[in-house]
Amino acid sequence: MTAKIAYDEIEVGTVLPAQTFPVTRATLVRYAGASGDFNPIHWNEKFAKEVGLPDVIAHGMFTMAEAIRVVTDWVGDPGAVVEYGVRFTKPVVVPNDDQGALIEVSGKIGAKLDDNTVRVDLTAMSAGQKVLGMSRAVVRLA
Protein backbone atom coordinates (compact mmCIF):
# COMPACT_ATOMS: atom_id res chain seq x y z
CA MET A 1 0.00 0.00 0.00
CA THR A 2 1.58 3.22 -1.14
CA ALA A 3 -0.78 6.16 -0.77
CA LYS A 4 0.77 9.37 -2.05
CA ILE A 5 -1.12 11.63 0.38
CA ALA A 6 0.27 12.13 3.88
CA TYR A 7 -2.17 11.89 6.78
CA ASP A 8 -0.46 14.73 8.63
CA GLU A 9 -0.99 17.14 5.75
CA ILE A 10 -4.74 16.58 5.62
CA GLU A 11 -7.34 18.44 7.66
CA VAL A 12 -11.07 18.04 8.11
CA GLY A 13 -12.64 20.05 5.30
CA THR A 14 -9.78 19.46 2.83
CA VAL A 15 -11.39 19.35 -0.61
CA LEU A 16 -10.50 16.63 -3.14
CA PRO A 17 -10.30 17.48 -6.86
CA ALA A 18 -13.85 17.20 -8.24
CA GLN A 19 -14.52 15.21 -11.41
CA THR A 20 -17.33 14.98 -13.95
CA PHE A 21 -18.08 11.64 -15.59
CA PRO A 22 -20.12 11.48 -18.82
CA VAL A 23 -22.47 8.53 -19.30
CA THR A 24 -24.20 7.62 -22.54
CA ARG A 25 -26.25 4.61 -23.63
CA ALA A 26 -23.05 3.12 -25.01
CA THR A 27 -21.40 3.49 -21.59
CA LEU A 28 -24.27 1.54 -20.02
CA VAL A 29 -24.17 -1.27 -22.59
CA ARG A 30 -20.47 -1.60 -21.98
CA TYR A 31 -20.92 -1.59 -18.20
CA ALA A 32 -23.69 -4.19 -18.48
CA GLY A 33 -21.31 -6.50 -20.31
CA ALA A 34 -18.38 -5.91 -17.96
CA SER A 35 -20.42 -6.28 -14.77
CA GLY A 36 -22.87 -8.95 -15.88
CA ASP A 37 -25.87 -6.81 -14.91
CA PHE A 38 -28.19 -7.03 -17.92
CA ASN A 39 -31.31 -5.61 -16.26
CA PRO A 40 -33.20 -4.04 -19.23
CA ILE A 41 -33.94 -0.83 -17.29
CA HIS A 42 -30.31 0.05 -18.14
CA TRP A 43 -30.58 -0.30 -21.92
CA ASN A 44 -34.21 -0.78 -23.05
CA GLU A 45 -36.21 2.45 -23.07
CA LYS A 46 -39.53 0.72 -23.69
CA PHE A 47 -39.01 -1.59 -20.75
CA ALA A 48 -37.81 1.22 -18.46
CA LYS A 49 -40.93 3.28 -19.20
CA GLU A 50 -43.21 0.27 -18.70
CA VAL A 51 -41.92 -0.11 -15.14
CA GLY A 52 -42.51 3.57 -14.41
CA LEU A 53 -39.08 5.11 -15.00
CA PRO A 54 -38.73 8.35 -16.97
CA ASP A 55 -36.18 6.76 -19.34
CA VAL A 56 -33.24 4.35 -19.27
CA ILE A 57 -31.26 4.81 -16.04
CA ALA A 58 -27.61 4.12 -15.23
CA HIS A 59 -26.68 1.14 -13.07
CA GLY A 60 -26.40 2.34 -9.48
CA MET A 61 -23.17 0.37 -9.28
CA PHE A 62 -21.81 2.30 -12.27
CA THR A 63 -22.38 5.57 -10.40
CA MET A 64 -20.77 4.04 -7.32
CA ALA A 65 -17.75 2.98 -9.41
CA GLU A 66 -17.36 6.51 -10.83
CA ALA A 67 -17.74 8.30 -7.48
CA ILE A 68 -14.87 6.42 -5.81
CA ARG A 69 -12.54 7.53 -8.61
CA VAL A 70 -12.42 10.96 -6.96
CA VAL A 71 -10.87 9.18 -3.97
CA THR A 72 -8.66 6.66 -5.76
CA ASP A 73 -7.29 9.22 -8.25
CA TRP A 74 -6.44 11.47 -5.30
CA VAL A 75 -4.80 8.83 -3.12
CA GLY A 76 -3.05 7.01 -6.00
CA ASP A 77 -3.40 3.46 -4.68
CA PRO A 78 -6.97 2.08 -4.93
CA GLY A 79 -5.98 -0.54 -2.37
CA ALA A 80 -5.88 2.26 0.22
CA VAL A 81 -9.70 2.24 0.33
CA VAL A 82 -10.69 0.48 3.55
CA GLU A 83 -14.45 1.05 3.41
CA TYR A 84 -16.86 2.46 0.86
CA GLY A 85 -20.61 2.80 1.12
CA VAL A 86 -23.42 4.66 -0.66
CA ARG A 87 -27.18 5.01 -0.70
CA PHE A 88 -28.86 5.17 -4.11
CA THR A 89 -31.18 8.14 -3.69
CA LYS A 90 -32.16 9.10 -7.27
CA PRO A 91 -31.54 7.42 -10.62
CA VAL A 92 -29.14 8.87 -13.20
CA VAL A 93 -31.44 9.25 -16.22
CA VAL A 94 -29.61 8.68 -19.51
CA PRO A 95 -31.38 10.02 -22.62
CA ASN A 96 -30.75 8.49 -26.04
CA ASP A 97 -28.84 11.42 -27.54
CA ASP A 98 -25.24 12.44 -28.17
CA GLN A 99 -24.86 13.98 -24.74
CA GLY A 100 -26.26 11.37 -22.38
CA ALA A 101 -25.91 12.44 -18.75
CA LEU A 102 -23.19 13.79 -16.49
CA ILE A 103 -22.32 12.56 -13.02
CA GLU A 104 -20.58 15.30 -11.04
CA VAL A 105 -18.65 14.08 -8.02
CA SER A 106 -17.02 16.13 -5.29
CA GLY A 107 -15.46 15.04 -2.04
CA LYS A 108 -14.02 16.45 1.15
CA ILE A 109 -12.49 15.11 4.33
CA GLY A 110 -15.27 14.54 6.86
CA ALA A 111 -13.15 13.18 9.68
CA LYS A 112 -9.66 12.09 10.62
CA LEU A 113 -9.79 8.60 12.11
CA ASP A 114 -7.36 6.23 13.82
CA ASP A 115 -4.54 4.37 12.12
CA ASN A 116 -3.78 7.06 9.50
CA THR A 117 -7.27 6.77 8.00
CA VAL A 118 -9.62 9.55 6.97
CA ARG A 119 -13.30 9.58 6.06
CA VAL A 120 -14.08 11.17 2.70
CA ASP A 121 -17.64 12.43 2.25
CA LEU A 122 -18.65 12.28 -1.40
CA THR A 123 -21.42 14.12 -3.23
CA ALA A 124 -22.68 12.85 -6.60
CA MET A 125 -25.08 14.96 -8.65
CA SER A 126 -26.77 14.45 -12.00
CA ALA A 127 -29.18 16.89 -13.66
CA GLY A 128 -29.23 18.92 -10.44
CA GLN A 129 -30.25 15.97 -8.26
CA LYS A 130 -28.30 14.18 -5.60
CA VAL A 131 -27.94 10.64 -6.93
CA LEU A 132 -25.95 9.18 -4.02
CA GLY A 133 -26.59 9.79 -0.33
CA MET A 134 -24.51 8.83 2.71
CA SER A 135 -21.66 8.35 0.30
CA ARG A 136 -18.54 7.79 2.37
CA ALA A 137 -15.17 6.18 1.96
CA VAL A 138 -12.54 5.43 4.58
CA VAL A 139 -9.02 5.60 3.15
CA ARG A 140 -5.64 4.84 4.65
CA LEU A 141 -3.08 7.55 3.97
CA ALA A 142 0.70 7.53 4.17
Partner: peptide, 25 residues
Amino acid sequence: REFAEAVGETNPVYTDPEAAKAFGY
Protein backbone atom coordinates in the same frame (compact mmCIF):
# COMPACT_ATOMS: atom_id res chain seq x y z
CA ARG B 1 -9.23 -4.81 -17.57
CA GLU B 2 -12.68 -5.03 -19.17
CA PHE B 3 -14.33 -3.74 -15.98
CA ALA B 4 -11.77 -0.96 -15.49
CA GLU B 5 -12.27 0.20 -19.09
CA ALA B 6 -16.06 0.08 -18.71
CA VAL B 7 -15.89 2.53 -15.81
CA GLY B 8 -13.28 4.70 -17.54
CA GLU B 9 -10.41 3.86 -15.19
CA THR B 10 -6.92 4.63 -16.47
CA ASN B 11 -4.84 3.69 -13.41
CA PRO B 12 -2.30 1.09 -14.63
CA VAL B 13 -2.55 -0.78 -11.31
CA TYR B 14 -5.68 -2.37 -12.85
CA THR B 15 -4.14 -3.39 -16.15
CA ASP B 16 -0.34 -3.60 -15.94
CA PRO B 17 1.17 -6.28 -13.67
CA GLU B 18 4.46 -4.33 -13.48
CA ALA B 19 2.65 -1.18 -12.32
CA ALA B 20 0.77 -3.29 -9.78
CA LYS B 21 4.10 -4.64 -8.46
CA ALA B 22 5.34 -1.08 -8.03
CA PHE B 23 2.36 -0.57 -5.72
CA GLY B 24 3.34 -3.72 -3.83
CA TYR B 25 0.77 -6.12 -5.33
